[in-house]
Design a protein around this nucleic acid. Structure first.
Length: 286
DNA sequence: TGGCAGGCCAATT
DNA sequence: AATTGGCCTGCC
């Protein structure tokens, strides 16, 4: 029984009832491939981590949700994190009726949102992601956090923060090997070293325009065009950018006759990319 | 049981 | 400038 296992979420001082009026689907969000640490820890109960903050959230019914944080943190941290000031329903409704495949994909993927994740964590996790399956990525990231992150105690469990650049660059080869990072180890150590030595680099990057940001990211070892686009979209919220991975390439080849449709989506290209990616993956397009 | 997995990089044309 | 092989290793 949920109430016995998770009493805190039933207690007024630790949990809060909130309303989310725009489309919002926790299951789809954690399976959309943009984040690797969020999980459904129990039937209908989801856990998200950002920085030292942990959120447990449950969909009750309709627009009603229970969250395990204070009103202040909900408004100032988690609402921005879930991009709740953006109207995704309006974005879906703006899709051209001529774009049948995107219409179908967006309808299927209704409720996905582009999270505002930490740029540093996003950078490293997407360097790790290359040539790995999503479960393998999640497992490697989790090992890294357990080895080098700081402990976070919640009423339910002990978790770990994502390691800082200082901590990550100080890890031994042996430690990194234990995290199943394979040939990406030098990419990660070197990138961490660069970010450690230039503490303002990521903050500066936030002020760059999209093209300059991509070029700056690709200066880092292990960051090519795809990882740069993912970092920019998911870590810097650059929604005009649409990462092209093998799945999206299949969509372009098979559904758009080889011509990349994203330029026509303008500032919403990244959101459309997520719809297409999630739909292509779910339908097992090959 | 092996082949493959949300690429990147360097060597080769 | 464009193409191609090699790479660590866990997962299905």
């Amino acid at each position: 029984m949920f109430i016995k296992k998770f009493p805190f979420i039933e207690r007024k001082e630790k949990s809060m009832h909130i309303f989310i009026r725009d489309e919002f689907d926790l299951y789809k969000i954690i399976h959309s491939g943009q984040c690797f640490r969020a999980v459904e820890i129990n039937d209908g109960l989801f856990r998200f981590i950002t920085g030292r903050h942990v959120l447990y959230i449950r969909h009750i019914q309709g627009i009603r949700y229970d969250v395990s944080c204070s009103p202040y943190l909900w408004n100032h941290l988690w609402k921005p994190y879930f991009d709740l000031s953006e109207n995704y329903e309006a974005i879906r409704n703006s899709i051209s009726p001529n774009d049948h495949y995107l219409q179908k994909a967006a309808d299927y993927s209704r409720g996905i949102r582009i999270l505002r994740q930490d740029p540093w964590e996003t950078l490293i996790t997407f360097i790790i992601s290359q040539r790995k399956s999503i479960p393998a990525i999640a497992s490697a990231v989790e090992k890294l956090c357990q080895k080098a992150g700081e402990e976070i105690k919640t009423p339910l469990e002990i978790l770990y923060t994502f390691p800082t650049p200082q901590k990550l660059s100080s890890l031994s080869q042996e430690d990194l090997k234990a995290c199943s990072l394979g040939y990406r180890i030098p990419y990660i150590s070197k990138s961490a070293e660069i970010i450690k030595k230039s503490p303002h680099l990521l903050k500066d990057m936030a002020t760059y325009d999209d093209e300059k940001l991509l070029n700056a990211l690709m200066e880092l070892p292990g960051v090519g065009i795809k990882v740069a686009n993912c970092t920019a979209l998911f870590g810097f919220h650059r929604t005009a950018l649409a990462p092209v991975d093998v799945w999206i390439q299949r969509v372009i080849d098979q559904k758009y006759e080889g011509s990349n449709p994203f330029p026509t989506y303008g500032q919403k290209a990244g959101i459309m990319q997520q719809y297409l990616f999630y739909y292509a993956q779910s339908t097992g397009m090959k």
